[in-house]
């Protein structure tokens, strides 16, 4: 636990974020116009970055199977279509997803550590991580203890993430900050740094279970944190905005942000993901629109 001791002071000295500046930068980036071939490339890239997600209490094996079939066969009418990056489910459904996706390169991600609130004891949370990995998860999405973070117990948050990472070994660990509960951009920056230092492979904005999901200013702050971390340590951390990104236009705006802040190297599913369920259909509709010229209708695309 040596590393922890070195880091204690740093967590209280993370950079202060200028909110007005962040909003202005987002607005400026949003004014970029992406058309024609670059739009098509962006749409397909976004599609390849999707973690197709279903995280409902009412999820059944059938629903998960259906989602996996969708992940494998996005649309036969369109040529050169990439497949989505992963399917994201609850731990108890990992096995079914794994079986369904056998033979493809689509990963199975599982949410763990008492998702979405994380309010169970730590031992149980670690147990859940082990269970998900045992069931065959290729990636796990953990939540941090927001209550502990907000009461200033950064060290504990760090330790929990670090121990979860130990449990994961080489399994990809995404750390959900649940930014909507962290109140300020300063907190989001600090939580990002804690997560990255503790060994996260990805930092993720939200669970999608609160009122507010991913927003662009929040994501911009997290991307800046990733950039600074990379410059200091030479380690590339991935980013996953999740919750509320349901249309192609917004997705492309995220890609523009990633390119402008982190560069082309991050424009790959190994370093950038969208946590979404309805985004895939909108991307497919936009791709079809680009090819056929006619605006599309949800009536002609599979329902999730």
């Amino acid at each position: 636990m040596k590393a922890n001791q070195i880091n204690i002071a740093n967590f209280r000295q993370t950079p202060v974020i200028d909110q007005v500046g962040v909003n202005e930068r987002v607005a400026r980036l949003n004014s970029r116009s992406i058309k024609k071939t670059s739009k098509m490339a962006a749409l397909k890239l976004a599609l390849s970055m999707i973690d197709l997600t279903t995280l409902e209490g009412m999820d059944t094996p059938g629903k998960v199977q259906q989602l996996c079939i969708k992940a494998k066969h996005l649309n036969h009418g369109i040529s050169d279509l990439p497949h989505v990056a992963a399917v994201c489910v609850y731990p108890s459904l990992v096995k079914i997803a794994k079986k369904e996706l056998n033979g493809t390169s689509i990963n199975v991600a599982s949410v763990v550590t008492g998702f979405p609130s994380g309010q169970t004891n730590f031992k149980t949370r670690l147990e859940e991580v082990r269970y998900a990995i045992c069931e065959g998860a290729d990636e796990v999405d953990m939540v941090i203890s927001r209550g502990k973070f907000l009461s200033g117990d950064f060290q504990l948050v760090f330790d929990e993430i670090a121990q979860t990472k130990e449990e994961c070994e080489d399994i990809h660990l995404k750390v959900i900050l649940e930014t909507s509960e962290l109140s300020t951009l300063d907190n989001i920056r600090r939580a990002s740094e804690i997560a990255m230092k503790a060994g996260a492979d990805f930092i993720k904005t939200s669970t999608g279970k609160t009122k507010c999901g991913a927003t662009q200013p929040i994501s911009l702050v997290m991307l800046e944190a990733i950039k600074d971390f990379y410059q200091k340590t030479n380690k590339k951390i991935g980013m996953k905005p999740a919750g509320g990104i349901s249309d192609s236009k917004t997705a492309i705006r995220y890609l523009v942000m990633v390119k402008e802040i982190l560069g082309n190297e991050w424009l790959t599913p190994t370093l950038f993901r969208f946590g979404a369920s309805s985004l895939a259909n909108d991307l497919l509709m936009q791709i079809t629109k680009q090819q056929s010229g006619a605006y599309q209708s949800a009536d002609y695309f599979s329902k999730d």
């Binding site: 010229g293 006619a294 605006y295 599309q296 209708s297 949800a298 009536d299 002609y300």
Partner: peptide, 8 residues
Amino acid sequence: EHFSSHKD
């Protein structure tokens, strides 16, 4: 053209 071609 768009009135008539829009799939929705």
